[in-house]
Amino acid sequence: MSVSAAQAPPAHQVPPRRKVRLSWGVRRGPSPVLDTVTLVLAAVIVLVALVGPLFAPDVYASHIAEAAHGPSAAHWFGTDDQGRDVAWRIVVGCRDTLLSAVLVVAGYALVGTGVAVVATLGPRWLREVLMRFTDVVLAFPGMIFALAVAAALGSGLDSVMIALVATGWPMTARLLRGVLAETMTLPFVEGARTLGVSRTRLMLRHVLPNSLPVLWVKWAGDIGNTVLVIGALSFIGTGAQPPSTEWGAMVSGAKGFVSTAWWMALFPGLAIAVTTAAFGLLGDLLNVRSDPALRRRANAVGGVRA
């Protein structure tokens, strides 16, 4: 029986049917184009960092006659106040900046993993001490703590890297400790312990290798964020100092020329932004591809994009 006109809702109360368009940046499904762009961009950045400096001229030699020239065919990104080619300095700085970020992430990943493993295998009192200390470090604002450590060690890229390792390991330790504790309760671990396999052998041969993939996604995304933090610390004078080719130091050295030679600060800043976005999206991509639940959800929504 059809619904009578009296029972039907008034026309003005029926919401119009329309296509929902999400804001850009909210991923609700697979996007082959964005995934391809992300992979290509990350690969290009790594390739530039590895190969680019081999072909670069001397990026520290001054050429005062060509100082502060705008972008041209001879100098695609212009020259700085010393006549040095900004494009080549960015290429050389890609190695310094990206390598520093990778070393920082590898450093705090190693420290955090060590703390989590010791806390899992050690006695209860040691686990409590390590985890409470981890919570105390996590309670401090990361940037302020990094500034304090870098200031205590003195200005320089090495000091910034040590400071970021000191502030980055607690999150890895906390996350990995939870994953290890859960993995240690799985049936195959209990079965191996029943057969007499030691806890240390179980941890190193089975539990840890099966737990680390959970954090690979985080570490990949952290590279881009670390590039941004290193650049910020260099910009405020705590990290690398001019005439270093580290991108944050290049932006810092161009602060006095923003109104007269805008390209000196713009292009290193864009390099930081593009690298941060590329590795952030790479972490997001790896997260979707490595998590079966997210992958099934992405395939179900069928590529609706923001």
Rank of each mutant, 00 (worst) to 15 (best):
L41H: 04
T97L: 03
L98D: 08
S155A: 15
F55P: 06
A73P: 02
T134R: 02
R84A: 11
T79K: 12
E128Q: 14
R124H: 13
I144K: 02
L153Q: 00
L138P: 07
T120A: 11
M171W: 10
W76I: 15
R132G: 10
A73H: 05
V48F: 05
L99V: 13
T97H: 05
M171L: 07
I64F: 12
A119H: 03
V51Y: 06
W169H: 03
L103I: 15
A56G: 10
A49P: 13
M143I: 14
V115Y: 05
R95N: 06
V165I: 15
T134G: 05
V165Q: 02
L54Y: 08
A146N: 01
A67K: 08
V48K: 01
V104Y: 00
G107P: 09
D96H: 08
L41V: 15
V91T: 13
L164T: 00
A68P: 01
F55E: 03
S155K: 09
M171A: 12
L138M: 12
A56W: 09
F77Y: 10
A73W: 13
Y60V: 07
V86A: 06
I144S: 04
P123C: 06
T120D: 12
D80V: 11
V136N: 08
L147E: 00
V105R: 01
A139R: 04
V91Y: 06
H63L: 10
A73M: 07
T167F: 00
V91G: 10
F140E: 09
A173R: 03
A150T: 00
G107A: 13
L50I: 15
I162H: 01
V165D: 01
H63G: 09
V46E: 04
G112N: 07
M143Q: 02
L157M: 09
V92N: 08
T172F: 07
W125I: 09
V137C: 05
G154R: 00
W76F: 14
S72M: 05
P141L: 04
A119P: 09
A150Y: 00
